[in-house]
Every structure is written in structure tokens, then in C-alpha cells.
Amino acid sequence: MPEQENILEVSHLSQTFVSGHRGNRIVVKAVDDVSFSVRKAETFGLVGESGCGKTTTGRTIIRLYDPTSGTVRFGGRVISGKMTRELSRYLAENIAMIFQDPIESLNPRMTIEEIIGEGLLLRGVSRARVHDAVVEMLHKVGLTEEHATRYPHEFSGGQRQRIGIARAMIVRPKMIIADEPVSALDVSIQAQVINLLNDLKEEMGLTILFIAHNLSVVKYFSDRIGVMYYGKLVEVAKSDDLYAKPLHPYTRALLSAIPQPNPLTERKRQRIDYVPERDHDYSAEKPEMREIEPEHFVYCSESEWQAYRRQVG
């Protein structure tokens, strides 16, 4: 594959949270030395279980948190440095976010038009033009003009998520960070929202960082996938490769745990457990991110790397 332009480059990003008082300070390394890059117009999936740091990674990139260390570059520009008014504006114009919970992320006292149009108003666009843009966006996400004057509580979960998407898209961002955008929705509605995101992606040439725990959805949606475990990125690969030949024992454990809608395979399924102490011996060699084959990276030690290389042949 020809080298494509990276739009987002995350290198050695760490995010720690400190709680407790003097004496019993608790430091949590939510994201621990994570590096990856996202190419223009691709969808990069970040998967892992709760607490693995996938959400924190997304939130740190968009600067909802100040990164503890490491750098994040977006479109060649460092966005992890000191927060200035100008940087804040740059972020708001280029990266938007879609949240998991469509009710908590919409202000209940604002109308849909106010919610969706806020980003443009703050930018000094005139009210009349904002109204037109909101209506256009509403149509794009499958709602109608008459919805503009209503309030969030009048909508179903799927519609609220559409509103969240419209709000993110109206500023025409280059990248969207979608944090579990469909996991709060009913099965029959999830497909609608996934299709909508796919359509918008194609139409607007969007880059998406897709954060989720449902591996079937992530596989369907993403070009490449990164698997996180306890704040570390343990494997990055093209999505087909990740499922066809998972290498890191955690990835294998995670894949073996997904229930598939197929009674024939489910009844014979063998689950693999991941026990870090048993599966790795890092006493002599320190693990790091190593390339096993083109586009397939695993967090491993030198000897594991050799074993993985033999495995992929």
C-alpha cells in the first residue's frame, strides 16, 4: 500500500490521574505510552474493555484532558502543547466528538436548533445562515426541519444520536472521535446509525477515530484497529488481519470471548484466558511495539517478536 498521509499522529502519549491525599496518593496510569497514527479518510478503531484507557485516549487527543506526557500532532501541528485560545479554536474547527450517551450529552434546555447550531454561532456565523445550515444538517442525518424547534427529551435514543452526529458534523471537521456511538442504542437502531456514519464518512471524506467495545461493529466499521489493555496499546493491525491472525495473547482472549450469533459455533466455543504473568516473561527483555509484518504491530519482547514472525510465516 502506498504511504498515505497521516492526519493524526499520537506518540508516546501518557495520561495519569492522581487522586487521594498526601500520604496515600493514588496515581492511575490511564494511558501509558501509547503511539499510533491515523491516516486521512480512514477509520481507526480503538477497542478494549472498560478501564483500558480507550476513552481517555480519545478525550486527551481532543484536549478534554491535559496530556501528562507525549505529543499529539494533527495535520502536522502539535496539539498537545500549551492550550491557547488559538489552539482551542484550531481543535474546535478540526476535530469533533460524538458521545456514547445521547441524552447526557445534549443540553435538555436547548432546542435542537440551538444545540446543533451552537458551534457555528460561536464562530460568528449569522443566525439566518446558521438556521439554513442546521436544516441542511438535519436532513443529512435523517431528521426534518420541524424537529429544529423541539427539545432533546422529545426524541428517541436513535434520533438523539443523530442530533449528536449533526452537532459534530455541522462545523465540517476533518476528524471525528466517536466514543461508543451505538452501544446505548437498540439493535434495530444501531444499524441505522452505523449506516449514517458510513454515508457521512464517504460523502465528506471524514477521518474517524472509532472507540468501542463491540468487536463485530468495530471490525465492520474500521480500516485498522488498535487493541488496548490496561492503558497500553498491545496490537495494531488492519482489521482483517487482526481477526484472521491475532498475535498478542490479549487480542486472542478478547476475540475468543465475543459471542457470535451462531448456535453451531457458540456451543463448541473455546475461550482463551489472558493471564499476563503466565503469558509473558518480561524479566529479561523489555517489551515494546514491534512490527511483525507490514502494518501489523504487537507490543512484545524480542523473543516473542521472533515467535510471532514465525507464526505469520
Binding site: 439493535v187 444499524a191 452505523i194
Partner: peptide, 13 residues
């Protein structure tokens, strides 16, 4: 309506 691990085509919502 839900993708399985082999789904490539557009989902029928």
C-alpha cells in the same frame, strides 16, 4: 441488522 465478523456490505437497517 447487526454486522458479524465477515460482513462487508451495507447493513440492512
Amino acid at each position: 441488522s447487526m454486522p458479524d465478523l465477515e460482513t462487508k456490505e451495507r447493513l440492512t437497517a
